[in-house]
C-alpha cells in the first residue's frame, strides 16, 4: 500500500503510518495525553523532515483532542473563561513559535534545538512522574493512605496582582500566571510539535490550584485551539503541513485511542503514570543518544527555499 505524500514528497507505506498513528493513539487513550511528544519524534525517526513532522502533528493533535474536548464541554467540565485567557497568551506564543521555528530552520539548528528541548522537557517530566508514581506504588504496597493535596494551601502565585474570579474552577487568581502559562505552552507546542497537555495539566493543578475535575477539559479545549492556530500558521509561514499524512495519522489515532481508553480503565492510576514515565524517558534517551553519539554521516544537505 504505497502512498505518495504531496508535501513531505515521500513515498511511504500507508499501513506503517496508519500503524504509527494507531500506536500513538493507543498510548494517548491509555494515559489521557495528546501523544504529540511521541508522534513527532516517531515521524522524524522514520524519515519525515522535522519541519513537516512538527507542522503535520498539529492537525493530528486537533483531531485526537476534539472528541474528548466535546464530551468534557457537554458535561460542563471546561472553565471557558480560563481557557480563553490561556488562549490569549497561547496565540502570541504560537505566533512567536512559528517565527522562531522558521529562523532556526534557516540557521540549520532546528534539529539541535529539537534534540535539546525534547531531552530536557521529557527528561524532567518523565523523571518527576516516575519518582511520584513509584512513591505512590510503594506507599500503597506499605498500606499507607495516599498523601492528599491540601486545596486551601496558597503559594507565591496567589500574591500577584490583577486578580480575576474563575467561577467554574472556584479560584480567585491573577491573570498574569494564566497568560504566561498559555504563552509558554503555546510556544513550546508550536516549536516542538506537541500539544503540551503534559505540561499544562500539572501546571494548572500545582501552580494555580485548579480542581482536577475541570483541569483536563480546560487543557483539552486550549490545546484544540492552539494546535488549530499552529496548523494554520505553519501552513502559511512554512508550507509544511501535509494534509494526507495528517489524515493517515488521524484515522489511526482515533481508532487507537478507543482501545487505549478501554484498557486504561482496567489499570491503576499510579501504574499507568509509571508506565507513561518510562515511555517519556525512553524518547528522551533516544534524543540524548542522537546528541552525543557521532552521526553515521556528519554531512547533511538541504534545498534552499524548498518546502521539505
Amino acid at each position: 500500500m504505497q502512498l505518495y505524500l504531496p508535501i513531505a514528497e515521500l513515498t511511504v507505506n500507508m499501513l506503517i503510518f496508519l500503524g504509527v498513528g494507531g500506536a500513538v493513539g493507543f498510548v494517548s487513550g491509555l494515559f489521557g495525553v495528546g501523544g504529540g511528544f511521541l508522534l513527532t519524534p516517531l515521524l522524524i525517526f522514520s524519515g519525515v523532515s522535522p519541519a513537516v513532522a512538527v507542522a503535520t502533528v498539529a492537525p493530528q493533535i486537533v483531531a485526537s483532542s476534539t472528541s474528548a474536548a466535546v464530551s468534557y464541554w457537554r458535561r460542563r467540565l471546561i472553565d471557558e473563561k480560563m481557557a480563553l485567557i490561556l488562549l490569549s497568551g497561547g496565540m502570541i506564543g504560537s505566533g512567536l513559535g512559528v517565527y522562531v521555528f522558521r529562523a532556526l530552520r534557516s540557521l540549520g539548528q532546528l534539529d539541535l534545538l529539537l534534540g535539546f528541548a525534547y531531552v530536557t522537557l521529557l527528561g524532567v517530566i518523565g523523571g518527576l512522574m516516575l519518582r511520584e508514581s513509584v512513591g505512590a506504588i510503594m506507599r500503597s504496597r506499605a498500606g499507607r493512605p495516599p498523601v492528599g493535596r491540601r486545596p486551601g494551601q496558597h503559594n507565591w502565585v496567589h500574591g500577584l496582582p490583577l486578580k480575576v474570579r474563575f467561577r467554574r474552577s472556584k479560584i480567585y487568581v491573577s491573570v498574569l500566571p494564566v497568560v504566561a502559562l498559555g504563552f509558554g505552552v503555546g510556544f513550546l507546542g508550536t516549536v516542538l510539535g506537541i500539544g503540551g497537555g503534559f505540561l499544562l495539566v500539572p501546571a494548572l493543578i500545582y501552580l494555580l490550584r485548579v480542581p482536577t475535575t475541570v483541569v483536563v477539559g480546560t487543557s483539552l479545549g486550549y490545546i484544540v485551539c492552539t494546535m488549530a492556530l499552529a496548523t494554520v500558521l505553519h501552513a502559511v509561514a512554512n508550507g509544511s503541513v501535509d494534509i494526507v499524512l495528517a489524515f493517515l495519522l488521524m484515522i489511526g489515532g482515533v481508532i487507537g485511542a478507543q482501545f487505549g481508553a478501554q484498557i486504561g480503565q482496567t489499570l491503576r492510576g499510579e501504574h499507568l503514570r509509571a508506565l507513561l514515565a518510562i515511555i517519556v524517558l525512553a524518547v528522551a534517551m533516544r534524543f540524548l543518544f542522537d546528541l552525543f553519539v557521532a552521526p553515521p554521516d556528519p554531512y547533511s544537505i538541504e534545498m534552499l527555499g524548498a518546502v521539505a
Binding site: A63, S67, A246, M250, I251
Partner: peptide, 12 residues
C-alpha cells in the same frame, strides 16, 4: 486542514 481534523475527531 483544521476543518478536516475537527470533523475527523468529532466523527471518531
Amino acid at each position: 486542514t483544521v476543518a478536516l481534523s475537527l470533523f475527523t475527531g468529532w466523527l471518531g
